[in-house]
Amino acid sequence: MIATLLFYAFAAVLTVAALGVVTSKNPVHAAFFLVLAFFQSALLWLLIDAEFLAIVLVLVYVGAVMVLFLFVVMMLDINVEQLRQGYTRYLPLGVVVAGVVILEIVHVIWYRSQGLPILSVPTSHGPDYSNTKELGAVLYTEHVFAFEIAAVLLLLAIVAAITLTMRKRPGLKVQNIAEQVAVRSADRIRVVKVDAVTDAKD
């Protein structure tokens, strides 16, 4: 009863947030709506006892990915007027593409699902059941190769991203921090002893 009410509440906010992502004029607002949408889907996952997935969704997508995303979007100076140009020119093409996508979705969800058995709600386990432990037990034994391949792919992406930014431009000035830290006072200043000069008073 309470779970059902919560489900409808979270699902309603999720739908509104998802609509907000595509309809907001300001890209920063759209990004905030996306954060809200992620958060709501995490709550929906919590309702079906998938606490590991829910928390990791918040941790990875809301806590890290969207922060960097906002970081970039906030710094962009997007001219909305310029983006709106050519709206009528591209409208027919857009309508055709949207129609095809809608047809495909209907085909997959409605047409092909006729006569399929409806999955029941997953059975709830007791409070001692550890979602995380079960996932880990399968991930590192049965699916270890898929896991390793995914890890290698991610590593490859990191290396690729770093090599793209590591170009040496001529005349680029960089600080060598090790050199800065190793500096002693004797390298920079010279202490000179100067005898005090006193004017002879008469």
Partner: peptide, 25 residues
């Protein structure tokens, strides 16, 4: 006493930055 307590801590501490980002923007 939730089972994934440490993950919960990590997830929520990482959300704290939104207060700062929203305030700044």
């Amino acid at each position: 006493e939730i089972d994934a307590g440490l993950l919960y801590v990590l997830a929520l501490t990482s959300l704290g930055v939104y207060g700062v980002i929203i305030a700044g923007w």
